[in-house]
């Protein structure tokens, strides 16, 4: 295992503006056409100030932070995420990550997603497993 993956090592952050076009594409590819993602009025009826992106879209984008490692020697064994606050359509999200544990051929990566509105919209962990 590379010595680059040590406790506390920071991963290269990623950011993406989650445009309405991306939200539409995700709705199409996932089949999730819940109106809270596409219609401000429907989102307001559910207590949001504007339409929000799919939580699973945040999770999909956040996982890209480990892609540089996957083509090296790891595969993803586990991935979890808690969705804490909404991301509004059109916002740019920032994904940051750090190594929180290296043990027995596994690397645990803590990831956090933030937006201009909320410092933490989601947090989770990716467990990477070394190929045997």
């Amino acid at each position: 295992m590379s010595s680059a993956y040590q406790f506390g090592s920071l991963l290269e952050p990623i950011s993406l503006e989650v445009t309405e076009e991306i939200i539409k594409r995700y709705g199409d590819v996932s089949g999730d056409h819940n109106p809270i993602h596409f219609d401000d009025n429907e989102a307001k009826k559910r207590g949001f100030s504007a339409k929000i992106i799919h939580g699973m879209l945040s999770m999909a984008i956040a996982s890209k932070i480990v892609e540089p490692l996957l083509n090296d020697s790891f595969w993803i064994k586990q991935y979890n995420m808690k969705f804490i606050k909404p991301v509004f359509a059109g916002e740019r999200i920032l994904v940051s990550g750090s190594v929180s544990l290296v043990q027995d051929g596994q690397v645990l990566i803590h990831v956090q997603v933030s937006s201009p509105t909320y410092p933490q919209v989601a947090k989770g962990e990716l467990c990477l497993q070394v190929y045997k």
Binding site: V18, V29, M56, A60, I61, S63, L70
Partner: peptide, 28 residues
């Protein structure tokens, strides 16, 4: 899926395995 999650074509071509959150699209 890659296009819908803002991933460029080249990066997707290089992946050995599908992204970890992809199975959620099976719901449809």
């Amino acid at each position: 899926y890659a296009a819908a999650t803002g991933t460029d074509h080249t990066a997707t071509e290089e992946l050995k395995h599908v992204p970890p959150a992809l199975p959620m699209i099976f719901y449809q």
